[in-house]
Structure formats: structure tokens, C-alpha cells
Design a protein around this nucleic acid. Structure first.
Lengths: 207, 207
DNA sequence: GTTGCAGTCTTAACACTGTCAAGTTAAAGT
DNA sequence: ACTTTAACTTGACAGTGTTAAGACTGCAAC
């Protein structure tokens, strides 16, 4: 068997939590169950994370890093047109949420160490990708403060993707989709929604 | 003291849960604590709600009814202009969420009896108020199916208010607000955001 | 090579939770 | 007046997070 010391328990616990949440949702999380999956005593996690909150906070932090990657991938997919970049960024946002619904819920839930530095940092990083996109569209140099129009565009975009994602996860979009699978509904309706919001609040690219 | 029978325990439990959630958030909910507050044994709630989920579902149902009222109040505030009606409806949505953050979280959380008839009914009722607003703006008679443009407008509006509300509740808008109180930030930024989305996806009123 | 030591994990316990089966009480129906 | 039915209590059980104490391990210093 393995040694008394686990080797990399910290990462193992994060992984086990991630898997548990992916399988059964956030509510099913239990520190003891996670410890069980990692083959370790119920008190072991405390040494690495202090708290159950601490472990969840670490998982959420990793989640924000994943979200940031998804946004940047979408960004790249959009090519050079600022509007297209924002469009695909938004799609990436929702796709990430739908691919990891439990983790996504966790990331924006209470029950995290709200003051945790790494968490706030990774959360801001994700937000900054979106802000960058808006900066590009409004031709605002980095460092310069955003003007009002840019602020409302940023807020509108963020709100719309966040809201769409949450509604989809909560199952509130299923009735709208009718009998066809949710993914198909999302694939057609989300771009349409984003199109409207973007053309309504973001200036077009210059030729 | 009171008699052995409580009189209206069902309502008392809902009230106690509501208060507890308002004071300490959804996570702090505990069936035993609620029973304690109602001056009743831990097993008493089971008779009325079966389950802890059952009690929470009842509270969420009441929450949707409150949300519906808030939407209708906003609707009335908007007067005759369909766009203004939608604007104030959106403001009402967010205001309700900010006034009852814990309950709002609960309403869209897992851990409810998703199949509960009353819950779905009250949830749909809230949605229908929004749909009515869009119907009015697009001049679609009740009963007639919504055309695509109307659908995306409906989705965009719902998403934007839902997302904005969730972000605000999660404290993610505080950094944007800077040092001034969140309510002030909301009061200026939310109408601006809604304005953009509405003019971008909802046709203007005919003269 | 032995010793000390700091970090890692376990064990045992505590207070708390949700849920049940069985029993007790009060009110309503006949 | 007697029975039935609904409302609530009691006591128990399994499971939870957290904590204090102890046991093991590997590394560094001597």
C-alpha cells in the first residue's frame, strides 16, 4: 500500500471534491465523503485547508481559473472583430457553466471565504478578460478608466451571460426549449441573445 | 402558555424559516433551529412538510409569489409605454432580489422538490408577467405563439435582470461600485443597462 | 549514524444535524 | 360519551464538521 504520508493530499482532496460535486451537485458535498474518497481520515483535510469552507474555496478558485481559460479560448475564436470576440467569449462563459454546473454554482455561492486572496484574485482575472474585450471594442487603452458607455456595455454583457447560465443550470430554460434537448436550444438562442445585446451596446468595428 | 396544538404551525414554520434565512443566509438554515424558533419539537415539521426540502420548497413558492407581485408593481409603475413597463419590471426584479437575497438564492437553488406542482406554478406565474410585457411590446395576442424576435427579447431581458441580481447578491458588483454604497451604484447603472438591452431588442411604442 | 524536529496523518470524542417509529395529547365526529 | 383522527413529543439512530491528543514519517543538523 501507500505510505503513511499521502504525497499530494491537497491536490487529491481538491480532485475528489471536484468529482463529487460534478456527480451529485454542491449540496451533496461532505468533508467526510471527500476524505473517504481520498482514502484518508476525516480530520486530515483540516491540516491543509483548515476548514470545509477552505477546501471549497480552493475548488472555487480553480474553477475561476478554468473559466478564465474558457473566456480566453472564446476570445481567440472570435478573431479580430471585437464584437465577435465578445460574442464567443459569452458563449464560452455559458458553455463552461453548463459543463461544470456544480462548480459554477459553488463559485458564486456564499459559504466561501469571501475575503480569501487567491479566490478574489482568480475571480477578478476572469472579469478582466471580459473587460479587455470591452476595452478593445471601445478603443480604450489599458490603464485608462472606462467611460460610462463602456461600463454599461460591460455590465450588460456580464449580466446577460451570467443570468443565462444560471437560468439554464437551474432548469428554468427547459420549458422554453420544449421537447428538444437543452443544448440545442442554447446553441440557437444564446447567439441570438448575445447578438442583440452586443449590437445594442457595443460599437461596430472600424473598417 | 399555548395549547398542545399550535394552531397554525405550518405558517409559523414558513415565517421562522423566512426570518432565519433573511438574518443568516440560506446556508444557515436548519430544520431544528426553525423548530426551536417556532417553539416546537424537531420532528413536528415533518408532519406538515414531510421533509426539510418540503419546507424550503414552500418558502421558495412564497418567494415566487412575492416576486410576481414585485414585477406587477413595476409593470404598473411603467404606465402605458411597453418599453417603460419592461424597464420598471426589470428594476422590480432586481430590487426584490436585493431585498431578499437569501430567499432569492433559495428560489433558484437545487435542493428543492423540483417536481413540486405549487413551486412550478408560482415560478411560471412570475415568468408569465415578463412574457406579458413582451407580448404587449410586440403586439402579440395572448394565445398566439411568440415569434423568434420576441423570444430572444424575452430571453435577453430575463437573463440580464437575473444575472445582474445574482452578481449583485454575490458581491461581485461591489468592486465596480468602488467606495459608494451598492444601492447607489445599482440605481444608476441598472436603468442604463436595461435601457440598452430594451432599445436593442424591443420595438418602440407606436405613437 | 544518531538524534531532534516539524510536518503529516489517525484516533476518539463532542455537539450538532435530519429522520424515523412509537407513544401522548387534544380536538372533532358520531 | 366514545371513538377516531390529526397534531405534536419522545427517544433513538446514523451521519456530519471540528477539535485535542497522540502516532508515524522523513528531513536536517549534529
Amino acid at each position: 500500500m501507500t505510505s503513511y504520508h499521502h504525497g499530494d493530499l491537497r491536490q487529491a482532496l481538491i480532485g475528489a471534491t471536484d468529482a463529487l460535486i460534478a456527480e451529485q451537485g454542491v449540496e451533496a458535498f461532505s468533508l467526510r465523503e471527500v476524505a473517504r474518497r481520498a482514502g484518508v481520515s476525516p480530520a486530515a483535510p483540516a491540516h491543509h485547508f483548515g476548514d470545509a469552507r477552505g477546501l471549497l474555496t480552493a475548488v472555487a478558485t480553480a474553477g475561476f481559473e478554468g473559466l478564465t481559460e474558457a473566456l480566453e479560448a472564446g476570445n481567440a475564436k472570435g478573431g479580430k472583430d471585437p464584437r465577435k470576440r465578445l460574442l464567443h467569449q459569452g458563449i464560452g462563459y455559458v458553455e463552461y457553466a453548463l459543463a461544470h454546473p456544480g462548480k459554477f454554482r459553488l463559485m458564486f455561492s456564499e459559504g466561501l471565504e469571501g475575503a480569501d486572496e487567491k479566490l478574489m484574485c482568480s475571480g477578478n482575472a476572469a472579469f478582466l478578460v471580459l473587460e479587455e474585450g470591452v476595452r478593445l471594442a471601445f478603443a480604450i487603452a489599458p490603464g485608462q478608466p472606462l467611460e460610462d458607455e463602456a461600463w454599461t456595455a460591460l455590465l450588460a454583457l456580464w449580466s446577460v451571460v451570467h443570468g443565462y447560465a444560471n437560468l439554464a443550470i437551474a432548469g428554468r430554460l427547459q420549458p422554453c426549449a420544449g421537447e428538444k434537448p437543452l443544448a440545442a436550444f442554447v446553441a440557437t438562442s444564446l447567439p441570438a441573445v448575445l447578438e442583440k445585446v452586443i449590437t445594442g451596446s457595443v460599437p461596430p468595428a472600424k473598417p
